[in-house]
Design a protein around this nucleic acid. Structure first.
Lengths: 151, 151
DNA sequence: ATGCAAATGCAAATCATTATCATTTGGAGG
DNA sequence: CCTCCAAATGATAATGATTTGCATTTGCAT
């Protein structure tokens, strides 16, 4: 299976052993459509009958994030760290305040902006993290329906 | 003192009592040059001889954030919530990865970007949160000095 | 001045995460 | 294929960040 082969290579390349637990966690994040917290990942593993300790989940996640195989982010609305696969694509999160779903988008408006900041403040930019809040298409439609019904 | 008068009015306007603790916390955040976590706020209050319980600090911060008198943010590098005054100005954080200082900037590149997202994905944007990582001017100079010395 | 609901102090509890140590495992090397 | 050992894990305890419950205090309307 070429997916686990690339995990094995990625782990090797990072000087990490290819353990069942690490591979399983990378698989979970590979399949996920949005960033997950440690507990969600743990539950997904349990659901797939992978024997693992929650403390190991935390340790593995932090290790993989340190090696940049995955990305650790956070969310203002939660007091929990979030993790997502690192495709080495540059993406941002759209967070629906209704259903809490996170939509990943590729567009980024920063090139010009970062140049401007560098010139103006002398700040050497290494990266950024952007979360956009709003309401997704689905929830907008649902809310419109509900508004119609309440008339 | 017109500062505490405006706090009193802001609290009243939000349906909250004007307690010593709330006023003191708003003052701390008013004076701060960057977002602070609960422990930093608690220590600043203690330093100013304000008698308060840490659990009250948490409670007051969450109450004020709920009423949008202050803003609750988070930082990926910490497992701690951050709080800052809400000037109703639109600002972003530049985070120096060296000294951890947070610099507030007014510039925002989002108008065009948000229009584009709305058209493309049908996402109704209500707001965003942006953290930019890099190295501030001061630390760049210090690092250059150190590099010169190590030759 | 009074009374009452909101707010606070305090301590305990909960939640999210990390540390410690005994045991297991991946994989290099022979 | 076997051995050995350092890395990794399981299990549990601990820690740090935050929240909760309840008795008491306080802001403020009357």
């Amino acid at each position: 299976m070429s997916e686990t082969l690339s995990h094995k290579e990625a782990l090797q390349h990072s000087g990490l052993k290819n353990t069942k637990q690490r591979s399983a966690i990378l698989n979970i994040l590979e399949k996920a459509t949005q960033p997950l917290n440690a507990d969600q990942i743990y539950l997904a593993l349990v659901t797939e009958k992978v024997a693992i300790n929650l403390s190991t989940v935390y340790r593995v996640l932090n290790t993989l994030a340190e090696k940049e195989l995955i990305i650790k982010t956070s969310s203002v609305s939660d007091n929990k760290a979030l993790f997502e696969r690192n495709d080495f694509k540059h993406q941002h999160h759209l967070v629906c305040v209704e259903c809490k779903e996170i939509i990943l988008v590729d567009e980024c408006p920063f090139e010009e902006y970062e140049k401007k900041l560098n010139e103006k403040i002398g700040f050497t930019i290494l990266g950024h993290q952007l979360e956009i809040y709003g309401i997704c298409d689905k929830c907008q439609k649902r809310i419109e329906e509900e508004n119609k019904r309440s008339i």
